[in-house]
Deep mutational scan, measured.
Amino acid sequence: MDTYKLILNGKTLKGETTTEAVDAATAEKVFKHYANEHGVHGHWTYDPETKTFTSTE
């Protein structure tokens, strides 16, 4: 398992979190669920070199 990072740049919520996942697709599902639960619906990007997802509203 690898550690993946999420950076949230929402209108009402900003911050970072991490998750352990078997691959990027699994981490993306976890992070999108997390963002949706916190009302963040933004544009998603992923940097495979740093294993970092960013959601920007």
Rank of each mutant, 00 (worst) to 15 (best):
I7K: 06
L6N: 02
F31V: 01
I7A: 03
M1N: 09
F31E: 01
D47I: 05
V22S: 12
G15R: 13
G15Q: 14
V30G: 04
W44A: 01
F31L: 07
A35S: 05
K29S: 10
Y34D: 01
E57D: 08
T3S: 07
V40Q: 04
T17Q: 08
S55G: 06
V40N: 04
G10D: 04
E57I: 05
H43F: 14
T52P: 00
V22C: 12
I7V: 12
A35I: 07
G15I: 15
K11L: 15
E57A: 05
G39Y: 05
L6A: 03
D47Q: 06
D23W: 00
V40C: 04
E16Y: 11
T17H: 15
I7L: 06
E20C: 13
L13T: 11
N9H: 10
D2Q: 15
A21S: 06
W44R: 00
N9W: 12
Y34N: 01
T19H: 07
F31M: 03
V30K: 08
A25D: 10
M1L: 14
G39S: 06
T54P: 00
P48W: 07
L13I: 14
T56F: 09
E57M: 05
N36G: 08
S55K: 03
A35C: 03
H33V: 12
E20R: 13
F31P: 00
E57P: 04
H33K: 15
D2T: 14
A21V: 03
E37H: 09
T19V: 14
G42A: 05
A24D: 04
L8Y: 11
G42M: 05
I7Q: 05
A25V: 09
N9S: 10
H43G: 07
A24C: 13
A25F: 10
T19L: 13
G15Y: 15
H41L: 10
E20P: 06
L6P: 02
A35N: 02
Y34I: 07
K29T: 10
N36Q: 14
W44C: 04
A21F: 04
E28H: 10
K11A: 14
A27R: 00
K32I: 09
L6S: 01
D23T: 05
V22F: 12
W44N: 01
N9V: 13
T52K: 02
L8T: 04
H43K: 11
A21N: 02
T12P: 03
D23I: 02
T56G: 04
K11H: 14
G15C: 15
I7R: 04
D47A: 05
P48V: 08
L13N: 08
A21E: 03
L8P: 00
M1H: 10
T50K: 07
K51G: 03
D47P: 00
N9C: 14
M1W: 13
T12F: 15
N9L: 13
V40K: 02
G39M: 07
S55E: 05
H33A: 15
N9Y: 12
K29W: 07
K5M: 06
K14M: 09
T19G: 02
H41N: 12
T50V: 06
G15N: 10
T17R: 10
E37C: 12
D23E: 03
H38S: 07
T18I: 08
H33D: 14
L6C: 09
A21M: 02
D47R: 03
T45H: 11
A21Q: 06
G10H: 14
T12M: 09
K5H: 12
K11W: 11
N9P: 03
E37P: 01
T50N: 08
E16F: 13
K29A: 13
T17E: 05
H43N: 12
L6H: 02
V30I: 15
S55Y: 11
E28Q: 08
T45Q: 09
A35G: 02
H41F: 14
G15T: 15
N36R: 12
T50Q: 06
T26L: 05
A27C: 02
T17G: 04
W44D: 00
L6Y: 03
A27K: 00
W44H: 02
E28W: 15
K32N: 05
K29L: 12
F31D: 01
A24Q: 09
T3N: 05
T26C: 07
T26W: 07
T12H: 14
F31W: 00
Y46D: 00
L8G: 01
A24H: 07
E20F: 12
D47S: 06
S55Q: 08
K14T: 11
K32L: 10
G42E: 04
T54V: 08
K51C: 04
D47K: 03
N36P: 02
G15S: 14
H43M: 13
L13E: 09
N36K: 14
A27T: 01
E57G: 04
N36W: 14
E37Q: 13
S55R: 03
H33Q: 15
S55D: 05
V40P: 02
H38K: 13
T17L: 15
T26K: 05
K5V: 10
Y34E: 02
L13W: 15
E57L: 04
K51E: 02
A24N: 04
Y4P: 02
V40R: 02
T50G: 04
Y34W: 12
A21D: 01
L6Q: 01
K32Q: 11
H41D: 13
T17N: 05
T26P: 01
T3L: 11
T12V: 11
Y4W: 04
D47F: 05
F53W: 05
T52I: 07
T45Y: 08
Y46P: 00
T45E: 12
Y34R: 01
H33W: 10
G42F: 06
E16P: 03
K32Y: 07
H38A: 12
K11D: 10
V30C: 07
H43W: 13
E57K: 02
L8C: 08
T45I: 07
M1S: 09
T18K: 07
K5R: 13
E37Y: 10
S55V: 15
G42N: 03
K5G: 03
P48H: 08
W44L: 08
T54M: 10
E37G: 07
L13Q: 09
H38Y: 10
I7C: 06
K11Y: 12
D23N: 09
K32C: 07
T26N: 08
G15P: 04
K29M: 12
